[in-house]
Every structure is written in structure tokens, then in C-alpha cells.
Nucleic acid binder design. Structure first.
Lengths: 210, 210
DNA sequence: CAGCTATCTGAACGGTGTCAACATGCATCT
DNA sequence: AGATGCATGTTGACACCGTTCAGATAGCTG
């Protein structure tokens, strides 16, 4: 162990805590799960007193908010990358779906936190409205796959439908009830792509309204 | 306030607590949210000492488990009802979807608890395997809608895809980001049915394998 | 009746979120 | 430069939480 696990030598008074706290929280979240994510534990991990965080976040909730926001940004990055590296624009959606589920599985506690609307504030944050957000990427991929970019309402509905579907898949795909089916299909990835293939069909139905 | 809010006169030693505790927990969950659901608060609400629950549940987790199980049963009932009262077998799926989302919205904290896989044990419990479970109902509705009941693998995949999609919709559908779209579409129900219509298309694609 | 066992209570432990009072040291103004 | 102010960090306290353990209670069995 070095000091706080972070670089530099504390450039300011104590360093810029808020960032260090968020990083510490995320570390704890992934290593020990949401149950172990106490404000005191975060402070401990960051090497400060239990009351120190209150000079940077009003609440424990506000800290979690910041952690969740970081999660959204990381996930958007993963989605961008998945779209960029797709073999063809038509396959971008499936690629995004796989990357999305992979992200959710690699950071399960963070992912759950991101979608926890119990904390009164944010859900998918304002970040979703920006140009490089995951949401925008999915919308773009839908257009690339043949959606009509001029029917904005249908396009938005399709984006939402896609997002919701993959979100559900991400949260449920490693339920133990599906275990034998996965085994019979020759592995997890095959299972994932099969379900995504089901979703894929509605992508192509966007043109005809009824 | 009567006594514990429950009927009868305490038929046994103190009454059958475990049931009373689960009901108290559910009451608190819906009234005050998951954050307020402490074991002590449950005991208080049930009118017993903080240590009493430990004679019926090993853990707080085990109590939550029981609450979640009750939630799954209630949701299965709602799904059965929705399928039974559908205008036609072909419309049963959409009806189920709407009922599902409605259930999730009316009991948001309970719904979130049901899908919380952080608690090490159950997810969708063994209950899902029984004949009247929601899962089985959806599968039946898919067959009614034209799915091939003999291709069991594809049928199961379609069931999973449907379930995941509606689960995602249930959790995300009242994100504030969708607010204006809903308004533009003339209300929440219209929005829901529109997204479900997108999902509906893959139901019909089950026959042709590729 | 006696005794057994399941059930409930009371007090206690360490841990938690939060707050108020106090300490510290950068940054700025004269 | 030295003094002042304000952001930042610490200490100690409070109420609440999950959990445990020793003891009280009361229904059932013989």
C-alpha cells in the first residue's frame, strides 16, 4: 500500500478530496459490494476523518450521485468504443448490446447504483443529452441500421425500446435460472447474442408504422 | 390505529409473527421506501422487541427474502389476471406487459427488492418454475400468439427476451428524460403501449429461425 | 402438576450517518 | 511582510442500526 493508492503528493491542502472520495467509493463498491459502501469506510479508504466528506458532499446520497455519474460516463465510453469498432454499421447495435451487458457484469454494484432511482435525484443524468452519450450513440446506430432519421418520434421510441431491452437483459442475464439453457447453447456469449438477435428484429420494423 | 393493523386477536403465543413481520415490512417499504426499512422499524411496526424477529429469520436478509417472495407471488397473480382478462389471446402479451409495468410502478420499492441480486440468495425464485408463475404465463401467451411450442429452445429464448424487455421498461419508463415525449404522445399509457408495440414485432418472428 | 421448548424481552456491542465546535493552513489584501 | 478570512480537516457527540446473549414468559407434553 502506498498512501491513498492515488498518484501525486497532495497538490493542495489535502489534495482534491471530492475526486479521491469518488474513486475510493468506486473501489470499495467493486471490491466489497454495496453493503460495505459506508461513508465512513470511504473516508477511511481515502485517509481522512469520517466528517471530512461533508465539506464536499451534502449527503451520502450526493456522494453516491457523483459515483453514479462517473459510471454513466464510463459506460458511454464503452458504448462509443463498441460502436466505433463494429465490423459494419449494421452490426453496431449488436456490438453495443454485448458491450453494454459486459459493462454491467463487470461493474455490477456500480451498474445497480446507476439505476437506483430510490435516491430522489437523478436517473439517467443530463449527460444523456450530450452528443457523445450512450443514448445518442444507440440512436445513431439505429439510423445506420436503417431507421428513418426524419420520423423523430418513432426513432426515439425505438431507441428507448432498445435501451430498455438491453438494460433488462443486463440485469437478468446471469440469473441462475438461465444457467442450463446457456450451457445447452454452448456458452454465455452465444446466449447473449441469441437474445439480442430477437431484439434485432424490431429494429428493422421501424419503417412501417402499424 | 388499531393494534398492529392486522386482524385476529393473536391466535398463538404472540400471534404468528413471521407473517406479521413480512406484512409490516411491506407496509414500511411502500410507505417510506427502502431506506427506512430497518429491522428495528419492522419490529416496532409489528409491536415487538428489536430482537424478536431473530426467532423467525436468521438475518435481516432472510426477512427481505420473504418479502421479495411475496412480491413475486403478487406479481404472478397480476400477470395471470392480465392474461385471463385479455380481449383475445393475441393481445394477451401486450396486456401482460402493461400489467407488469403497472405492478412495478405501484410497488416500486418492492419491485426493486425483488430484483436485488446483492442479497446472495434467490433471484427469480423457484416459484418461477411452477405452473402458475408469471414466467409460465408469458410463455403460454407467446404460444397463443403464434410461437412454435415444439421448438423449446427458441420459445424459451423468446420468453426470456420478452421478460427482460418488459423488466427494463418497467424500471426505466418513468425516467424524467421521457417526460416530454410522453406528453407529446398524449399520456403515459400511450407511451407504454407504443414501446410494447415495438417489442411485439419480435414475438411474431419466432417461426423463421434466421 | 412438573418440565420442556418455542417465543419474547432487556441490555449490550460495534458500526453507521450526521452535526456542531474547534483547529489548520492556503490565498489574498494592504 | 504580516494579518485576516475562508475553505478545508479533525474531534467528539448523538441517535439509530444489526446482532447477540442471558434471562423471563407462556403454551404444549407428559
Amino acid at each position: 500500500m502506498r498512501e491513498t493508492g492515488n498518484a501525486q503528493v497532495r497538490p493542495y491542502h489535502h489534495g482534491d478530496l471530492s475526486r479521491a472520495l469518488v474513486e475510493a467509493a468506486r473501489r470499495i463498491l467493486e471490491a466489497e459490494g454495496a453493503a460495505a459502501l459506508s461513508l465512513r469506510a470511504v473516508a477511511r479508504e481515502a485517509g481522512v476523518s469520517p466528517a471530512a466528506p461533508y465539506h464536499h458532499f451534502r449527503d451520502k446520497t450526493e456522494l453516491l450521485e457523483a459515483v453514479a455519474r462517473g459510471g454513466w460516463e464510463a459506460m458511454s465510453d464503452a458504448i462509443c468504443e463498441a460502436r466505433r469498432t463494429a465490423p459494419s454499421p449494421g452490426e453496431a447495435l449488436a456490438n453495443i448490446g454485448v458491450a453494454y451487458v459486459r459493462f454491467a457484469r463487470e461493474n455490477p454494484a456500480l451498474y445497480r447504483l446507476m439505476y437506483d432511482t430510490t435516491r430522489d435525484r437523478t436517473s439517467m443524468p443530463e449527460h444523456a443529452k450530450e452528443g457523445d452519450s450512450g443514448y445518442q450513440q444507440v440512436q445513431g446506430a439505429l439510423v445506420d441500421a436503417g431507421a428513418d432519421p426524419h420520423d423523430s418520434r418513432e426513432l426515439e421510441l425505438a431507441t428507448i425500446a432498445s435501451w430498455c431491452a438491453v438494460h433488462g437483459l443486463a440485469e437478468m442475464s446471469n440469473f441462475k435460472e438461465f444457467k442450463e439453457l446457456k450451457a445447452a447453447m454452448g456458452g454465455d456469449e452465444a446466449f447473449l447474442r441469441a437474445v439480442l438477435r430477437h431484439y434485432g428484429t424490431f429494429t428493422l420494423s421501424i419503417g412501417h408504422k402499424h
